[in-house]
Design a protein around this nucleic acid. Structure first.
Lengths: 188, 188
DNA sequence: TTAGGACATGTCCTTATGGACATGTCGCGG
DNA sequence: CCGCGACATGTCCATAAGGACATGTCCTAA
């Protein structure tokens, strides 16, 4: 359950409404931590019940901005320092790659081309963010520095995946010269 | 819902029981695609209901081995070639890094040390697998080649994260010289 | 003045995931 | 022959996540 702490962390930067948070989540973490608004509104209510956040202001259109409380700040800090990190890397392309041997070589090449392109584009997108930050467009607050660190992770991860996809194209699907006997259920 | 296709893919390599599949999932994909046995058994039953797999043999201790059917093979191939890839990279350390500014610098350094160590160890673990495969310990079937590709992704991803964590340690937490005025709710 | 788009918050249902708990079998070593 | 560890399969519950559907407001431009 990291959404909870994601929200607390974002609220630590300053008051925001559920709508704001949904947008920020989508923008900054869309590729990394998807969260749709129903989940966010529900979680905000729960956080408010537990007094980790409180209503800061009510605006037009039923807008309700929340502010983090001292208890909330303590909780996010506790999470950051004492809670175990979940090291699971849930990346579907990795799962798929286990089964590449089931694919027609031409389909596979096309697939890897598309994947490499996608990863490279994602890396480029994060690079643009990083450049903007390095130019000072987001100021130089501690928060923006942390964002820069997150962005760097995105760049490195997507670069790694892009180069992996390129490399994967160079791996021949099966032993080229020797016995091709045991095709098993995969035989076409 | 990729567990379904994960199971189909593993069964495409040959018959296996739920227990076997749970072990393989844990072994090969433990860090990437966690799946505990209750889910696996339930999904196998559903797959059998839809006749994408069928019972291959029953052994001692209620052991039931499943075999993929032609329909199942067609389904996994369909998934691999036509289904959209989910490009979400669900990595909790990235989410956490957005909030590093909330951490005490010493805690953060210790945290990044531990993270770097963990990522480097994971990369090393995958490297050992890769070496074994390259020495021919897993034979040279198409399946093992795909596994080699998956392992390579693991290596590159963990290397990227390890170097990122090292790099992150070199980022000063905030503007060193200039104004340190607006501490906001984060002020200690 | 009115239609459309961005703002803003929700309900409801289904499926997924994690984790605790339960049950029983087989083989082996002491 | 008895106990233990690996084998093997499940139920049950709580929470998380995804996605469809619903509702209404405010502002702006045609």
């Amino acid at each position: 359950m990291s959404l909870r702490h994601g929200l607390l962390g974002l609220l630590a930067e300053g008051p925001a409404s559920g709508y704001d948070l949904a947008r920020r989540f989508q923008e900054v973490l869309g590729q990394v931590w998807p969260a749709q608004h129903p989940k966010i509104y529900a979680e905000l209510r729960r956080l408010a019940d537990e007094e980790l956040i409180e209503v800061d202001a009510e605006g037009p259109r039923r807008r309700k901005a929340y502010r983090i409380t001292d208890a909330g700040l303590a909780e996010i800090r506790r999470w950051l320092t004492t809670a175990d990190v979940d090291h699971t890397i849930r990346v579907q392309p990795l799962l798929r790659s286990l089964f590449f041997w089931l694919m027609d070589p031409d389909d596979l090449r096309a697939h890897l081309d598309a994947e490499a392109r996608f990863f490279a584009e994602s890396a480029a997108r994060y690079r643009i963010y990083a450049k903007a930050k390095d130019r000072g467009e987001f100021g130089d607050s501690p928060q923006s520095r942390s964002m820069r660190v997150t962005i760097e992770a995105g760049i490195r991860l997507y670069d790694a995946l892009a180069s992996w996809a390129e490399w994967a194209k160079t791996v021949p699907p099966a032993a080229a010269t020797s016995s091709d006997a045991d095709a098993g259920p995969a035989g076409r």
